[in-house]
Design a protein around this nucleic acid. Sequence first.
DNA 1: GGTAGAACATACCAAAAGGTAAGTGTGAGT
DNA 2: ACTCACACTTACCTTTTGGTATGTTCTACC
Lengths: 130, 130
Amino acid sequence: MDRCATQCGLDVSLAVVGGKWKPLILYHLQSGPTRFSEIKRRIGGISEKVLIQQLRELVAMEVLVRHDHQQVPPVVHYTLTAFGETLVQALVPLCEWGTYNRARVADMLQRPSQKERDRGHAPARVAASD
Amino acid sequence: MDRCATQCGLDVSLAVVGGKWKPLILYHLQSGPTRFSEIKRRIGGISEKVLIQQLRELVAMEVLVRHDHQQVPPVVHYTLTAFGETLVQALVPLCEWGTYNRARVADMLQRPSQKERDRGHAPARVAASD
DNA sequence: GGTAGAACATACCAAAAGGTAAGTGTGAGT
DNA sequence: ACTCACACTTACCTTTTGGTATGTTCTACC
């Protein structure tokens, strides 16, 4: 955050949405108020601890609101705030960029040896992904 | 990356630009080819090790190109690729969002106790829908 | 000759982030 | 009575990330 004074503002956005699952959470909350267990089910693969953690951070940032119906089998809804929706809007182009370039990026992540090559010399032989 | 199958694409973008200093690096490279030491000077506060690391990752992602003039006091330039520029374009709205909301987010990060408080009683106030 | 500066590499370390596993309290279903 | 589901909490561990410190190879400068 304060590491770069008055620069590009991306540090601010990443401070809000930079968690591992936060983009996904925002994505799934676009459809309206959603229960905790429903979010968990939709995302899949996230542990309860981490989900709660990220939700709380988003709530603390006023990106989401937590609505606790005071019921005895607990019922809690999470909803995007107006502020949160401005964030979601700002995320749309990046989201589209990611969707459009998913294959390309995934492909690049598959060959970590490539980045070792452009050093002026060639190592023995790179895994040729046969 | 592959943790969420075919979703919002933000995971892809964050995989590319998610490092601590990467947004700053991209920001400073918009002005054209820049030397390693110049990037370091402009960013300030980043260690050489981490800067090199992030630069190499961006190069591996083909967001940047590394141009090594084979000179004996080393001279190396880093430049945005066309691909990298599409990424920068996609980042613009998020960047503006961050700039616009810098004060607000910074303010919220200052009170971590707030998020510990809304457990069992009414939250102080919700997003004021500006 | 000693120093500085260029663009790194390397070893080691600390902090943060994420994950696993277990437990909590209650009420509804079997 | 037992189990399950809900929305969490807590303790503990691993992985990832970033940071520090130092070394390297060469040239220019004093």
